[in-house]
């Protein structure tokens, strides 16, 4: 079963890539760009920036970066889109990007994965809250690691 033509494998993989890109990534990224634009036009982004600046500054991030962390809970593509949108609007720098990067994935799509991973694997639902906490905690620790040790 693991045999087979290398060329075919390459094409199969690329086909998977096309599907992931167009069906999972693209809609989430487009939505994230729209949300960032709407938040910016409405002035809400600036307000969020002020409100969340004390919390986000723990990670060395601007307050607006809270939108990245909220979007990523729904889908990593959303988090990526929000980060790219904030970079485009000159709100986040490349240092901010490096700090937030592991956080986007470690707490990414937890809401989706509740069904897709925990549900499918048949994990006892009494563990769900702890598993959510671990996902968010991993992200927090990883962003602090990036801030203190790496960037």
């Amino acid at each position: 079963m693991a045999q087979g033509n290398i060329y075919d494998a390459f094409v199969d993989g690329m086909r998977k890539g096309w599907k992931v890109a167009t069906l999972n990534m693209l809609p989430n990224v487009v939505l994230a760009f729209v949300l960032i634009k709407a938040l910016k036009l409405s002035g809400l982004l600036e307000l969020m920036g002020q409100w969340f600046s004390p919390v986000m500054s723990i990670f060395g991030l601007p307050g607006e970066a809270v939108t990245v962390l909220v979007s990523t809970l729904f889908s990593a593509g959303g988090g990526i889109g929000a980060a790219a949108g904030l970079y485009t609007h000159d709100i986040m720098t490349s240092t901010h990007m490096s700090i937030v990067m592991p956080g986007i994935f470690l707490m990414g799509a937890l809401i989706q994965y509740m069904g897709r991973i925990l549900g499918v694997a048949g994990v006892d639902s009494k563990h769900y809250p702890m598993l959510f906490c671990i996902g968010v905690l991993n992200a927090v620790l990883a962003m602090l690691t990036m801030k203190w040790l790496i960037v």
């Binding site: 890109a21 990593a76 990526i80 790219a84 490349s94 240092t95 990007m97 490096s98």
Partner: peptide, 12 residues
């Protein structure tokens, strides 16, 4: 797949 979007913006 999704992460490569941000590779060019990273400082590391």
């Amino acid at each position: 797949s999704m992460g490569i979007a941000l590779f060019p913006y990273l400082s590391v």
